[in-house]
Amino acid sequence: MSERSEKFLPSPAVHRAPSHPVSVIIAAIAFYWAASLSVVFLNKTIMSGSEFKFPYPCFVTLFQLIVALVLLVVCGQLGKRKRMFSMVPPFEFDLDLARKIAPLSVIYVLMLTLNNLCLQLVEVTFYQVARSLSIFFNILFTYTMLHQKTSPGAALACAVVVLGFFVGAYGETNFSWAGLLAGVGSSVFVALYGIYVKKTLGAVDNNQWRLLHYNTAISIVLLVPIVLLSGEMGEIMREVYFLGDVQFWALMTVTGLAGFLINTAMFLQIKYTTALTNTISGTAKSCVQTLMAMVFYQNPITAMNGFGIFLSLFGSGIYSWVRYAEMQRR
């Protein structure tokens, strides 16, 4: 699981002002940043940046979903006795309900797998640019599937993001067509996922945790044959010499835990802050993520590449602001 899990939660309600202590608000934002940044850098470390180089995105996704499902089941049981876990319901699986949720799970699997593949193939500094087209595809699918028009302000912000995408891609020194296409594909399914979540939530009484139960379990079932057919399992058995290393599996498990915690972190950030704080926090986190990648990985950045990164982040921030203003007016 990864950063894309943030898309799982419904859009936050608009609050006039938070009535919570400043320390609680800061803690909620810090928790979200820690979980989200950890997922990106841990996944990058696993697949291309450590002594345990493990370039198998399908298997990594499958393992992290298994960790998430185990945690969901445990939290569901603890919720029966402990109040702090009460928001997570006990695990359930109804076959008829699962059939209704299955289309969402197909999109979810493709979104996660392509996202991990993109992260494996491109630098973290370029990762945000490669996936920035989710805003464009969100507008496109909202219009073609839901017949809802986008305001001129949001469309203009989207145009800035698209320009940043092309400028950043052209200026990228370690350019990868496969990584770029994986990022675009991930953006497509991120946009579709948001639409299908809204359509599917009604089937589980608008309970995002129940939907997460079903979605995670179905995704595991879908991913098993993909891992086998992709040839990753055979290659892992032949090529990976550290399968018996406890540190490797500990790193994989921690990454799965971080992916799971994003759901809780987003829930808390939405609960304890305003909608504006939530959107600004996400954009600021993306900026810090890019800067951290420059420092930790020493990724070379050309002037054009840097300008493209700036445009994509700036356009994303303006888009978030415009959408927030529209929510306020409604």
Rank of each mutant, 00 (worst) to 15 (best):
L71P: 10
V73F: 13
V74H: 05
V74I: 15
C75W: 06
C75R: 13
G76E: 11
Q77P: 00
Q77T: 06
Q77L: 15
L78I: 14
L78Q: 14
L78M: 15
R81N: 15
K82I: 14
F85E: 01
F85D: 08
S86R: 07
M87K: 15
V88F: 12
V88R: 02
P89K: 13
P90T: 11
F91Q: 02
E92Y: 09
L95S: 10
L95G: 09
D96M: 13
D96T: 10
D96K: 14
L97Y: 09
L97Q: 14
A98G: 09
A98Q: 11
A98W: 01
K100E: 09
I101A: 00
V106G: 11
I107V: 15
I107R: 12
I107W: 06
Y108A: 07
V109W: 13
V109S: 10
L110W: 08
L110M: 13
L114D: 01
L114T: 12
N116W: 07
N116C: 12
L117K: 13
C118M: 12
V122Q: 07
E123N: 12
V124D: 07
F126V: 06
Y127S: 05
Y127V: 07
Y127E: 07
Y127I: 04
Q128I: 02
A130I: 08
A130R: 00
A130T: 01
A130S: 14
A130Y: 03
R131N: 02
R131D: 00
S132F: 01
S134E: 04
S134F: 00
I135S: 01
F136E: 04
F136I: 06
F137E: 00
N138C: 10
N138F: 12
L140E: 00
F141T: 01
F141K: 04
T142S: 13
Y143V: 10
T144E: 05
T144N: 09
T144Q: 06
T144S: 15
L146K: 11
L146P: 07
K149T: 15
T150D: 11
T150M: 12
S151W: 10
P152K: 15
G153L: 12
A154F: 06
A154H: 02
A154E: 10
A155Y: 13
L156E: 03
A157G: 04
A157W: 10
A157E: 04
A159M: 07
V160P: 00
V161W: 05
V162Y: 05
L163K: 07
G164V: 08
G164T: 00
F165G: 01
F166I: 09
G168M: 06
A169Q: 08
E172T: 05
N174R: 09
N174V: 09
W177K: 07
L180M: 15
L181M: 15
A182S: 14
G183L: 06
V184E: 03
S187H: 03
V188P: 00
V190M: 00
V190D: 03
V190R: 01
A191I: 09
A191C: 04
A191M: 04
L192Q: 02
Y193A: 03
